[in-house]
């Protein structure tokens, strides 16, 4: 089954960072945008249409899943999202090291890795993106 995926259209991104805020609030990081599981990067030269948003692509052959020795990363067949199962995690950070795209983050305060779980199939960030740069389809 092909699940819906996150699509990023850099030309539409204005680096407003609404996505980061939405993510941080919905995942109870106290709204700390640096802890968000989605990251917006502005173009070095601030050129319109050159900004980008980076978020987990729920890879088919995911580095995080491969690297995890504890099988703590599982794909939900319904949403297609790879979930981090807290009760199985041994906090070794292998997944953070294993993701080549930088979408597996280490939440130092909680000593926990965090990642995008597609908000159980209805990503909040997409709803708050004012320009349509983020789509879930």
């Amino acid at each position: 089954m092909v699940s819906k995926l996150m699509h990023v259209t850099p030309s539409k991104c204005t680096v407003c960072r609404n996505c980061e805020l939405a993510c941080a609030f919905s995942h109870m990081h106290g709204g700390k945008p640096t802890a968000a599981r989605i990251r917006a990067f502005a173009d070095d030269q601030q050129r319109e249409g050159h900004h980008a948003v980076v978020v987990c692509m729920q890879c088919e052959e995911a580095g995080c899943v491969k690297a995890c020795p504890a099988h703590a990363l599982w794909r939900n067949p319904e949403t297609g999202a790879i979930y981090h199962v807290e009760a199985r995690c041994i906090r070794c950070q292998s997944c953070v090291a294993g993701c080549p795209f930088g979408n597996m983050r280490w939440e130092a305060a909680m000593e926990f890795p965090t990642k995008c779980d597609l908000c159980d199939g209805d990503p909040v960030c997409v709803k708050f993106c004012p320009t349509g740069a983020l789509e879930h389809r």
Partner: peptide
Amino acid sequence: DRCKAQKTAAAY
């Protein structure tokens, strides 16, 4: 992870 994400952004 941040530098990796930045690289990803650059690629996009």
